[in-house]
Amino acid sequence: MNETITQLPGQPRMHTAIFGRRPQKALSAGVWYLILGFVSLLVVIPFIWMLSTSFKSANEVFSYPISWLPNQLRWENYVNAWKAAPFARYFFNSFFIAFAVTFGQLISCSLAAFAFARMNFKGKNFMFTLFLSTTMISTQVTLIPSFLVIKYLNWQDTYQGLIVPFLANAFGVFMIRQAFLSLPRELEDAAKLDGCSRLRFLWQIAIPLTRPVLSAQALFAFMGNWNSYLWPLVVTNRQEMRTLQIGLRYFVSQEGGTQWGVYMAAAVMVTIPVILFYFLVQKSFVEGIATTGIKR
C-alpha cells in the first residue's frame, strides 16, 4: 500500500516531504549543501588549527596576524614532544589497559549474560535487578571508596589498579543477554544431546553467532577506556604509569604553558590514532550508538 502512495505522480517522497516540494528540490539542495558545508567546516576548524599549529615554528605560533597554513612543514615539534615526555610509554599503557579491560569485560559479560539468558536459577530476577541497578551509580560517587580500596591493596601505580575495577559492566551484560536470548532453544537442546557442556556451547556456538553485538560492545569498552580520565588521574602518580590522556595533561601543565606548537603536536599524536580507528570501524560504531544509545 505504501508503494502505491509513494509512486503516485506528484506525490513527494520522504526527504522532499520534510524540506519542500519537487520543483524547489534542486535549489533547496544547493542551499542545504552550502549551509551544511559551512557549519561542518566550523566544527572541524579546531582540528585544522591543531594540525596547522603543530607544524609551525615558535615564531610563527606567536605571530599576529595569524596564518592558517604553516609556511613550511616542520616536524621538529613532533620530535620534541616525543622526546620531552615518554609518549611511547603512555601509548603502551593506554593500549594495554584498554585492551585488557575490553577482553576481561567480554569474558565476564558473556558469562553473566549466558546465565541470565539461558539458565534458570534461584534468585535470577533479583540478581538481574541488582546488576541493572549498578548502571545508576556513577564513577564520581564510588570514586573515594574505590580509591581507598586500591590504596589498601597497594595497587596505586599498578596496571591491576587501572584494570580490575572495570572488569564488570552491566550495560554489556544487558546487551549480550539480549543477543543470547535470540538464539533458538533447539540449538541448545541439540548441543546438549550431543553432550556439549554449557561452557563449550557458550564458547563454540553462542559467542560466534552473536559476533556483531560482541564486537560493538568491545568497541565501546575500548574507546571508553582509552578516553577515560578521572580514574587514571586519581590512581597514578608515577610518570611511567600514566595513560596518554593524563600524560598529555601533565605535559601541557608542567611545561608552563608556552610551547603551543609542541603541545599541538602532542595533541595530534593523541587524537589521530583514534580518528583513524574510527574511520575503519565507522559503520558499526554509529550503528551501535544508534541502536543502543551507549557511549561509554
Binding site: 569474558i107 565476564s108 559479560c109 558469562l111 553473566a112 549466558f114 546465565a115 539458565m119 534458570n120 536459577f121 535470577k124 540478581m127 541488582l130 546488576f131 549498578t134 551509580i137 560517587v141 564510588t142 570514586l143 573515594i144 571508596p145 574505590s146 581507598l148 580500596v149 580490575v164 575495577p165 572495570f166 572488569l167 564488570a168 552491566a170 551484560v173 554449557r198
Partner: peptide
C-alpha cells in the same frame, strides 16, 4: 550453582567497586 559460577566474576567486581563504595560513602 553453575549460574552463580558464571555470575561470579561480575559479582565480585560489583561488590568491591560499586556496592561497597556506595555504602562506604
Amino acid at each position: 550453582f553453575a549460574a552463580y559460577a558464571f555470575l561470579l566474576p561480575s559479582i565480585l567486581v560489583f561488590i568491591i567497586f560499586t556496592f561497597f563504595p556506595v555504602i562506604f560513602s
